[in-house]
């Protein structure tokens, strides 16, 4: 595969005040990649993901999306980003949050059509049709007119996934999508995500589900101390890790795997 990467990240840094969370990350994401990002809490993995659709504005470095580097370069200073530009990027990069963040004052259908109608300016009929399509994909067609408060956590997260997919993003970001769920609800959400991955959609996934990462991802990244410590196919990173930090992390998690 000598294709142009869909996403290129170079020298990405992020600080919150004195707290230097990301300390220089480089990564190329190819079309169709499913990348699982692992790491202990505080490793910077969520911040990294959130930088990719500019929920957090990078303190330094450059992100190139479909051949276009986002933001404007300034000599000797971090790049500046215009709200207009970021708004466009975010429509092409879907995001699913740990806490779902559904809009409680809108129905399930309303949650999904919101972006189509308000951001993309589509009419009601085609937005509704598109939303029902995505709802059917996540298996919640019959819940279209419910309010989010009536749904289980797993159903909420599936609606959130449909909301992101409805905008036809070129890239999907999942930020610990099952961490806020009761254990018995994790499976239904992982199944939906797996279905999306099997369609060949490009995605990055921050997760604690090592088994899921092993079976679904084609690349696994292990992060610690704000940098990528180890990166490769799941076979290699999860079964035969080279970096002692990765080994320690996996050893800690294996205790609970069985």
């Amino acid at each position: 595969m000598s294709q142009e990467p869909i996403l290129t990240i170079r020298g990405l840094h992020k600080s919150f005040g004195d707290n230097h969370v990301l300390r220089g990350i480089d990564l190329d994401v190819q079309q169709g990649d499913c990348i699982a990002i692992l790491g202990a809490s505080g490793s910077g993995k969520s911040t990294f993901l959130r930088c990719l659709n500019f929920m957090e504005i990078p303190s330094d470095g450059a992100i190139t999306h479909a051949g276009k580097t986002i933001g404007t370069e300034r000599p000797g200073k971090p790049r500046v980003y215009s709200e207009d530009e970021l708004t466009k990027v975010r429509q092409k990069v879907g995001m699913v949050f740990q806490q779902f963040n559904l809009f409680p004052h809108k129905t399930v259908l309303g949650n999904i059509t919101e972006g189509l109608r308000i951001v993309q300016g589509k009419d009601k009929a085609s937005s509704d049709a598109r939303a029902r399509e995505e709802l059917a994909r996540v298996g919640l067609a019959e819940k279209a007119d419910e309010y989010p408060s009536r749904l289980s956590g797993g159903q909420k997260q599936r609606v959130a996934i449909a909301r992101a997919l409805a905008l036809a993003p070129e890239l999907m970001l999942f930020d610990e999508p099952t961490s806020a769920l009761d254990p018995e609800l994790v499976g239904e959400v992982l199944n939906v995500i797996r279905g999306i991955a099997d369609e060949g959609r490009t995605m990055l996934l921050v997760t604690h589900e090592i088994g899921f990462a092993y079976h679904v991802a084609n690349r696994v990244i292990f992060m610690a101390d704000g940098i990528i410590q180890e990166e490769g196919p799941p076979e290699q990173v999860l079964k035969n890790p080279q970096n002692p930090l990765t080994q320690a992390f996996l050893a800690r998690h294996k205790q609970f795997e069985f």
Partner: peptide
Amino acid sequence: ERGQWEAARAIGMQRPQAMRR
């Protein structure tokens, strides 16, 4: 909650849109 702002921005809304809608 902050998550509501983030969800609105994540689907490409600008600040005034997110505020109003």
